[in-house]
Design a binder for these strands. Structure first.
Lengths: 207, 207, 207, 207
DNA sequence: CATGAATGAGGATTCATTCAT
DNA sequence: TATGAATGAATCCTCATTCAT
């Protein structure tokens, strides 16, 4: 197995995204990905253990960027509400910025076999944890409700973002997903806030 | 195509749920479903157009019950908060009451081919509409926030319930899903309510 | 097995011709024939041993008429050339008179399984023999060549009529098959005749 | 689709002829053909689009040789009668030389589905045209009758050869098909010739 | 490192026939 | 006689993976 670097490694990942986005999960044969990446079928097996490994690596690669990017953007924020607002914005803008990727992450990869879903769920746990940390911080800091299980809150936050994103990808209307940031924030922030301490949607997020 | 009643029609649906729950979507062969239902392979094609039709019918059958059941339970309720609380409870208790069904609806059917997913999404729209109606009623009645798009609220409600249910199904711990009703309500109700007008989790829901 | 008479027996034969002509051999299911005949699927098995028996009976029924009809028409003819001319005319006019039957006999039934073709070939032998008798008579009578094997002559006569008929059935142009009688006679008669003793196409044949 | 050359391409064609000849059209499974050809089932699909394509290619391959071979043999002949005699001889000797092929072409392939028959009929048209050209040449050259439609003559020639060949294949007696060349010529040549200008069966044909 | 020809397991569906009523 | 719901055997094709070059 060749190292995880090499330009071909990344080329295969990108080819997989493109092919899956265009043809759908069930029509994304290895040979099609190879052709798109400009390599021979067999070459893929020099960089990945099998097709499953390509897809899980794709997810790790893209979702890892997702989490890392979010952590960077929030690391200097002190206000939990602003953290929430920025999290929502980053989540949506990242997907909107690459519709192919959005299609693959929100729709196509979910049609995969159990083993792949398992690999994916392990990777997504990093994002889950990050969201839970925000909630915990908000509770400790006093902005968020104390009578709230961080894990439940995380499920509601992630479930909401995920459903909104899925509806956007599936919609034929080509509306602006980042425009959903404030409406979603307005409901979630209120849901998480200690009584009377809701912070209005922070300025500067959408710039 | 024989009539949609007939005990065999229902037996095949139930067999499909059982087989898919046990073996997973990709290992649910028609012959396995037939054997589980106690009929010959060919008999399935007297009641269903093809395998796809079995799966979509399964979803329609079960999800239809879902929506109908929820509508019945809520039809005499006047308070939007109580409607929300009961909706969450019904959603969770229905899935908890039939773990096989939950596994099939939350996990397995989502691995299906585009054509099946299309059939499914058309059916689920009925449930979406029902949730939106509750939100609209709450807004008109004055309990819910006016500055809120009912469709966005629906996505947050459904996304939250769906994510909580999915996590429950995938969890190895065998915890009580209906126990999530109150925590989820506490966050969503606050998120939807007009300022200061949140109603605490209504009594009698969990009985 | 019910008797070969009965109106249902004949109704099933006619239905088979109609269904095969319309849908083709491979799409002529027993259930379709039953529906066309206005009986239940199972009823067919009261009159015929199996589907194969229906098809062979169909052929016997229709081809038997063919041979009997030809024998009747020719029984008072003395001149071998006129016999040939009339044979050709009867062959063509019979097929032209029932295009469905022609389609079934010339095209569809030839796609059948070996066992059916075997049954058919036994029946057609009666027609073969009749043609050979004409040739033998012509040789004995002195009109036809002596240096000619009657069986070879029969193959050439039947092969010619069959090919001409097949081309007519397959043709999209809706030309008159009986119009081929004289041209075909002109070639075959010359081929069979003793030198210089060809008889021109007899008058009255085409009336 | 790999190139139409390759030894495997031809090996699959030959295997198909052999399997169909031995087991019949309806029992000629792809896996049987693959085993006979010494390749994996899937390999067949590297060289052919599907099973239908194998059969049509088989026909094109063999019937193409048929036409090409006949054209080569006749290209230097000037006498229409000799052309006819040689055509008959080539037709019969080609079939007699490969009894498996004869069985497949005369019997088995005629049981095939409409789509295959359509592919076949397009290919055979080349042979039809070749026969018609001979007839036209004979008419222009003055040896053949002027009052004769070349297409009708072609149907009589081809129908005769086809029927004689079919009877030979189906016969249990193992007689010599090429022995039919002269008898068939004697009838057809007379049928086509202008009065009194028949040429006796040319010497040297049967060598 | 790279190639790509070859492999071969696995499953939905049709339809002639039966038999309890 | 007549019905028609139920049966179940039988097969083409795809595509992830390998390995000789």
């Amino acid at each position: 197995m060749a190292k995880k670097s090499g330009e071909k490694y990344q080329a295969i990942i990108e080819a997989a995204v493109k092919v899956i986005a265009e043809f759908g999960y069930h029509s994304a044969q290895v040979s099609k990905i190879a052709r798109e990446a400009g390599v021979a079928d067999g070459t893929i097996y020099l960089y990945f253990k099998n097709k499953e490994d390509v897809l899980i690596s794709l997810f790790r690669n893209k979702m890892g960027q997702f989490t890392v990017h979010a952590q960077n953007e929030l690391k200097d924020i002190k206000d939990p509400f602003e953290m929430l607002a920025r999290l929502i914005h980053i989540h949506f803008s990242k997907l909107q910025g690459d519709r192919s990727l959005a299609l693959v992450l929100q729709i196509q990869l979910r049609q995969s076999e159990p083993s792949i879903r398992k690999g994916i769920s392990e990777i997504i746990r990093g994002y889950y944890n990050f969201i839970e940390q925000i909630v915990r911080y908000g509770i400790e800091e006093g902005s968020f409700r104390r009578d709230m299980d961080p894990r439940t809150a995380r499920k509601i936050i992630f479930g909401s973002l995920d459903e909104v994103a899925t509806c956007w990808v599936l919609s034929s209307r080509n509306y602006d997903l980042t425009g959903m940031t404030e409406p979603v924030y307005n409901i979630l922030a209120r849901g998480l806030a200690r009584d009377g301490r809701v912070r209005p949607f922070p300025e500067g997020i959408l710039d």
